[in-house]
Simulated scan of single mutants.
Amino acid sequence: MASINLTSDQVKFESSPNDTILQASLKQGVNHVHACGGHGFCSTCRIYIENGLEGLSERNEKEERLASQLGLTPEIRLACQTKAQGDITARRLVLDDVDQRLILQHGESKKPRSLGKEKEASVLFVDIADYTAFTEQTPAYDVVHILNRYFFIAGNIIKENDGRIIDYYGDGFLAIFGLNDNKNHAANLIKAGFALQDAIDRFDHDIHALVDREFKIRLGAHTGKVIWGTIGIEGMEKEAAIGDTVNFASRIEQANKDLNTKFLISENLYKQFDQWCTISGSYDIKAKGKEGIHKVFALDRMLAPMPPA
């Protein structure tokens, strides 16, 4: 007999080797959702294994099919297809009608949906300096035209350096490096940041025929762990990176305005590249949502050679 501890329900019980976790759970009176009747078609019985993954049966064909379709990580198992051969601690992931509707809705889509993975990545926020004044003093058509040219140039530079723009927010964007598990994500971000500055300097010169004002950008970057997953309802979902690393990178970018700097990076990032980059200064900042004082560095220029891509 195996011991099953369901932390989501605060219940612990024994399971026969012949019973699936779902069957054992239902015998204990747990309201364990299983919309398809426990036949491995819907995944509403999914559980997250907190401890004891090695004590579970291997995924069978039904579970393997759904796991592949939905992008389920090894820690997420179908209770209706999994048997416990050793003690486990787990929690149910579908707890009420809203959860059930959400899971069933996602199951209707053929498009794989990331359920949330922790990744080592580098995060870059970029925005346009004095954007409000730029839009107020520029005709609407020219605003859209200039922004499209700006995002085209920036997007290609990000892509060339193995990054990915995952969000636009009016005057700026959020780019992530490392989503494809490239270990050189931090170096790629630094190279992309300098390339962006050079390209936008040229762009600023080119658009003076359209607008009589400077077009400059501000960059902020940090590196660390991010949570990568899909959020939103069917038809309006998007892939997103969340977590402290993303939040802190945003705060660093915002600090440019007060410090009158252009390209700020965190201490964690700078320590990796101090021998390849010169700085124009270092600063202590407070970051909303984080305790204490944090040191950031204003990058000036890149020295050769940089780490290989």
Rank of each mutant, 00 (worst) to 15 (best):
S3N: 06
S3M: 11
N5E: 06
T7W: 11
V11S: 14
K12A: 12
P17C: 12
A24D: 03
Q28A: 12
G29K: 10
V33M: 12
C36K: 06
C36L: 12
C36H: 04
C36A: 12
C36Y: 08
C36I: 09
G37R: 08
G37A: 10
G40C: 07
F41E: 10
C42L: 07
C42E: 05
C42V: 05
T44P: 10
Y48F: 10
I49G: 02
N51M: 07
G52Q: 05
G52C: 04
G52R: 08
E54Q: 14
E54W: 03
E54L: 10
G55Y: 09
E58T: 00
R59C: 00
E61D: 09
K62I: 04
E63M: 09
L72V: 00
T73Y: 00
R77K: 09
R77N: 04
L78T: 01
L78P: 00
T82R: 07
T82M: 08
T89K: 09
R91N: 00
L93N: 02
L93G: 04
V98W: 14
Q100Y: 02
L102Y: 14
L102E: 12
I103E: 13
L104G: 13
Q105P: 00
Q105T: 12
S109Q: 14
K110E: 12
P112S: 11
S114Y: 10
L115F: 13
E118L: 12
E118K: 15
E120T: 08
S122K: 09
V123L: 14
D127W: 03
D127E: 06
A129W: 00
Y131C: 06
T132W: 10
E136K: 14
E136L: 09
P139Q: 11
P139S: 15
A140V: 15
A140Q: 15
V143H: 11
L147I: 07
N148L: 07
R149G: 08
R149V: 00
R149L: 10
Y150N: 05
F152I: 03
N156L: 07
K159E: 04
G163P: 03
D167M: 07
Y168A: 04
Y168K: 08
D171I: 00
D171M: 06
F173N: 02
L174Y: 01
G178V: 03
K183R: 12
N184Y: 05
A186W: 02
A186I: 03
N188R: 03
I190A: 06
A199P: 05
D201E: 13
R202F: 06
R202T: 07
D204I: 01
D204Y: 04
L210D: 13
D212G: 15
I217S: 06
I217L: 13
I217E: 03
G220I: 01
T223A: 14
G229Y: 09
I231N: 07
I233K: 15
I233P: 08
E234L: 13
M236I: 11
E237H: 15
E239C: 01
A240D: 12
A241T: 05
G243Q: 09
A249T: 01
S250W: 01
A255E: 11
N256T: 05
N256H: 08
D258A: 11
D258C: 02
N260F: 11
I265W: 06
Y270V: 05
Q272K: 14
W276K: 14
W276Y: 13
C277D: 05
T278A: 11
I279S: 09
S280G: 14
D284R: 13
K288C: 09
K290C: 05
E291S: 14
E291C: 00
H294G: 07
V296Q: 10
F297G: 04
A304D: 11
M306G: 11
P307I: 08
P308Y: 08
